[in-house]
Design a protein around this nucleic acid. Structure first.
Lengths: 230, 230
DNA sequence: CCGGATCCGAATCGATACTG
DNA sequence: CAGTATCGATTCGGATCCGG
């Protein structure tokens, strides 16, 4: 038996042996956004040691979760297998659960493009969604979230050097929302859009401020009390 | 910042910091079945070192996932907080995902009462369920699974020393099913109930063999190809 | 027996440096 | 760009011990 096996014949145990090592789940989270090269992953996971990153990628490949795809011209990317992609609902449920326990950011905590993208997917409520285009800025991460017919698409925008090529998703967004980490309290329903504006948690720097209402209806995670430890 | 923090402000990261340490998720899995004493957990997780068990229990308490409840007469139990209990859908989704990747058991792998109980919950399909009482034996684990009105209840039976008190859930089960680890292939839809019987993967030692059809309809995990690593 | 605490060798992780 | 090599700091695993 493998040394690190839990010694049980069980689906949960098998899952944990596949994606339960330190950093593995965050690699899968970023790959759920799209294929990534080694360097992209390293950038999106600023504190991961490079030897751990390569070890995890090898393990995930052996487990059939990730595969390595050479690019035509140069370089290569890692992408999820179909089985790896089928982890998405689990990841979203996990993100929703963890969201409830999020406090304020610690010193040094960062928000990455991929983590914010997944956070939006996590909070997306298809039933309550109305068609709209939002441009969302959190820290130096800029995203374009487009809602059409109950479907969400998120594109990552490069903050420096305004794109001169055709990278910008067709035209202007309905609203440009600039937020700090306190946006968590809006998504979590702890404060209303009006309160969020009043407390400078978010600002609508372009478009009508009422877009924040539809934003809050579209992206929402039900509040739940974290049980006391008494 | 905490040394073992991932340094990201994100729901997934928060979740992993709460339940991502080695063994933590398996402790939560067992506690989802019901409150357990320290010794119960140690028995249900045969390979966990005792210092790790107590460390994890402390961490889970600090995270608001678990709480420690003194018993009236003697001893104490650990139980999930409401927040910890809200992890159940994530656990079931994770178990379903891991189930797809389960192979044959390794040497030394065991099936515990709690893991089998959660596996039944994982595989339970309320829409396809018909009322029935099954007694299921896998290895030396014996369970009584009762389906009523699309709801599942699972009770654990003590294999030695037939219960003389009133512990036995009222009367006989409709069917007593004895299975080996190959029951995974029945639940996973790789083989039909008829094939499972023919291959001695399972046996119906009491009640009509046709109960196995309703069992297979009630407990099912859709098959999915684990992507190749090429 | 219950509920741990302590000790120690082995394995893993984290940080940095280095390479094809 | 895509890793490997190295090495000290941590953590894990196994065993033992201890107070109630």
């Amino acid at each position: 038996m493998a040394a690190r096996s839990y010694g049980q014949y069980c689906g949960v145990t098998t899952a944990v042996e596949l994606i339960g090592e330190r950093w593995s789940l965050l690699i899968v989270r970023d790959l759920l956004v799209g294929p990534r090269r080694y360097t992209d992953l390293k950038q999106g996971l600023p504190r991961i040691p490079t030897n751990i990153l390569s070890t995890r990628l090898k393990e995930l490949q052996e487990g059939g979760v990730v595969r390595r795809v050479p690019l035509l011209n140069c370089g290569l990317v890692y992408e999820l297998t179909p089985y790896g992609r089928s982890f998405e609902p689990v990841m979203l449920a996990l993100g929703r659960w963890g969201f409830q326990a999020m406090g304020d950011p610690e010193d040094g905590d960062v928000v990455t493009p991929d983590s914010l993208t997944m956070a939006l997917r996590t909070a997306f409520q298809a039933e309550d969604a109305t068609d709209a285009d939002y441009e969302l800025h959190v820290g130096d991460v800029a995203l374009r979230a487009s809602v059409r017919d109950g479907e969400l698409r998120v594109a990552q925008l490069a903050p420096p050097a305004p794109p001169v090529g055709g990278r910008m998703p067709e035209g202007e967004a309905d609203a440009v929302i600039v937020a700090g980490p306190g946006i968590r309290r809006l998504i979590g329903g702890e404060i209303t859009p009006a309160e969020a504006l009043a407390q400078d948690v978010v600002a609508v720097v372009r478009g009508d401020a009422s877009w924040l209402d539809s934003f809050a209806a579209t992206f929402h995670i039900a509040r739940m009390t974290v049980g006391s430890t008494t």
